[in-house]
């Protein structure tokens, strides 16, 4: 029983269900080293042909996101069309992995993406704060799944996490996973609020042990978003987790990734940390909205040899 884990006495040990009660060890993170390592991923020289392949891969890994209070079925319809056919002038480009919307927009998104490869992801569980009772959060998740969501993005309770109630955070994720049913569960750590790499690593291990299919950096709703060192910290946690349990967990980076250049920096990070097996939409996602346009402009530059501008792609 996971909730019997004494949260204060063993702050860094978690017990994944699949290991039959054998605890996981969370290794400490060397802050200086991880930041230095993360910087090296931005200095690779990527040649033209690889660039194009990387951009297409990045597009196929995007969760095209709109999380605005002013979202309407009309906006979601435009988003879905763009997700299915990112560039109408170049139908050879892949669709994005998913569209990511609020629960009330899931029926629209499901209708507009029907028949395509684009999945519907919904934030749920009192996103973006997670500050509601468990019952309300679970109802939110069930509601979104019933409306047609293939993937659910929830955020961990940072309040419980900071006060050392790891058991409760763990149980909440387990309950959320059950509520998801067939839908995939992505667990947002909101790394911008966790403070240290050790905390990020601990939260990553906890979320994976509790059954997350993906761990995700941020909601995009706080000032500090995904950064390369944070993504590296989480990727290393996944690597450790896979080594210790054999279970596959994906990584989603979100928030602040706007340029094609940033996207291939993250692809390099994933390739060199988790290996090419993770370079697929099943195991790596980028939550973004404006990134897609920048990737399209970069592809056009590669194809035509001319720089393009925002006038030549659709408005988000």
């Amino acid at each position: 029983m996971t909730s019997e884990l004494d949260p204060i006495a063993s702050p860094s040990g978690f017990t994944p269900r699949s290991t039959g009660g054998i605890g996981l060890w969370v290794t400490p993170v060397d802050e200086v080293a991880i930041e230095a390592r993360a910087r090296t991923f931005t200095t690779r020289s990527i040649k033209k042909t690889s660039k194009r392949a990387a951009l297409e891969l990045a597009i196929s890994c995007i969760d095209l996101t709109t999380l605005e209070g002013m979202d309407t079925p009309g906006r979601v319809s435009a988003l879905c069309r763009k997700a299915i056919t990112p560039d109408p002038a170049d139908p050879s480009l892949p669709s994005t992995a998913a569209v990511c919307v609020y629960p009330s927009m899931v029926p629209s998104a499901a209708a507009f993406t029907a028949g395509s490869s684009v999945r519907v992801a919904s934030v749920a569980g009192a996103f973006p704060s997670g500050m509601s009772s468990l019952e309300v959060r679970l109802a939110d998740i069930r509601d979104a799944v019933a409306a047609g969501a293939d993937e659910i993005d929830i955020v961990i309770g940072r309040g419980d996490f900071f006060t050392g109630r790891y058991g409760r955070v763990f149980d909440d994720i387990v309950a959320a996973k059950e509520a998801c049913g067939p839908a995939h569960l992505k667990v947002i750590l909101e790394t911008g609020e966790l403070g240290t790499y050790d905390q990020i690593r601990r939260a990553s291990m906890l979320a994976m042990a509790a059954g997350a299919d993906f761990i995700k950096t941020s909601t995009g709703k706080v000032a500090r978003n995904a950064t390369m060192p944070i993504a590296l910290c989480m990727a290393e946690a996944i690597r450790d987790y896979v080594e210790q349990t054999g279970e596959i967990v994906g990584l989603k980076v979100a928030g602040g990734i706007r340029t094609a250049k940033q996207a291939w920096h993250y692809l390099v990070l994933i390739n060199e940390t988790l290996g090419p097996d993770w370079l697929t939409p099943d195991r790596f996602r980028i939550g973004a909205s404006s990134l897609l346009n920048d990737a399209l402009l970069a592809i056009r530059k590669l194809d035509t040899g001319r720089y393009s501008g925002p006038d030549y792609v659709s408005i988000d």
Binding site: G305, R306, Y307, S308, G309, P310, D311, Y312
Partner: peptide, 8 residues
């Protein structure tokens, strides 16, 4: 050439 070709 880059300035004249730049679409923006």
């Amino acid at each position: 050439p880059w300035l004249l070709g730049h679409l923006d």
